[in-house]
Amino acid sequence: MNITLEQIDILRKRANVSYKEAKDALEKNNGNMVEALTYLEEQNRIKPEGIKIGDSSFINSIKEVIQKLNKIKFVVSKDEKTVLNISSLLAILIGIFTFPVSLIILILIIITHHKIRLEKGDNKEWGINSKIDKVSNTVSSTTDKVIKEFKEL
């Protein structure tokens, strides 16, 4: 049986093995691709695919995540007036690079009874928003009680 370079390339990509391993597996299985794959699998020689930075599927996945995050808006409002409306990607990046400051600002937003929402273009209500409301209400009511107690002193 004559093994072609094309067969070796296909097996190499499928099993993530070297040229030599692919050639040997094909030779041992008379050029049968399925049998060669099975043989490599039984020998535990199939290597899991690693993430390669140059791999276009990895880059496409990153682009897809960025596009989805750009469609989701981080909105802060008070008394039905929008105070801040930015993409969630930008909000995440700001949060990462200015963590202590953004954490303090987030606490101030909650304490001052502003509403935080994550909105998608279709204006559907997300379950996360009700959880954000619950945390905001708890923090706000606790803060109000502390301030009231402090004023009574």
Rank of each mutant, 00 (worst) to 15 (best):
R12C: 05
L5S: 04
N129Q: 05
N137E: 11
S130K: 15
G127V: 13
S87T: 11
V75R: 03
K124M: 13
K134E: 07
N129H: 10
L37A: 12
P48Q: 02
V83L: 01
I66C: 02
Y39P: 03
K115F: 11
E21R: 02
V65C: 03
I105E: 11
I46R: 01
R117A: 10
L118G: 07
D133L: 09
K120C: 10
F74Y: 08
I86V: 09
H114F: 13
I111L: 06
K145N: 13
K78N: 03
S87F: 04
R12Y: 01
T143W: 12
E80N: 00
K28S: 10
R14S: 08
T38F: 12
N44I: 07
S130P: 04
L108K: 05
K68M: 07
I128D: 04
Y19E: 06
I72F: 02
M33V: 13
L26G: 05
F74C: 02
I66N: 01
I62G: 05
L69S: 00
L90S: 10
V34Q: 11
K115C: 06
M1K: 06
T142K: 15
L69Q: 02
K120E: 15
S56F: 15
S61Q: 14
S57E: 14
S136A: 15
N16P: 04
K71Y: 03
N44H: 08
K115N: 13
G50Q: 10
F74D: 01
V76Y: 01
V146L: 15
N85E: 11
I111Y: 02
K81H: 00
S18G: 09
V17F: 01
I59T: 13
S130M: 09
V83D: 00
N32E: 13
D9T: 11
I92N: 01
R45I: 10
R14Q: 09
F58T: 14
E21Y: 04
D133I: 06
I111H: 03
W126Q: 06
S88R: 01
E125Q: 11
L118F: 14
M33D: 07
E49F: 10
E35I: 04
D144C: 12
N29A: 09
A15S: 03
V139L: 15
N123E: 15
R14C: 09
I72Y: 03
K73L: 04
I147G: 09
I62L: 12
N32D: 15
E80C: 00
V76S: 00
G54F: 13
V17A: 01
E119S: 05
R14L: 14
L153R: 15
F97P: 10
D55K: 14
D79C: 00
A15D: 00
E119F: 04
F97E: 15
S18E: 06
F150H: 15
N30L: 13
G50F: 14
I128P: 07
L103R: 08
L11I: 08
S136V: 11
S18M: 04
L69V: 05
V135A: 13
S87Q: 03
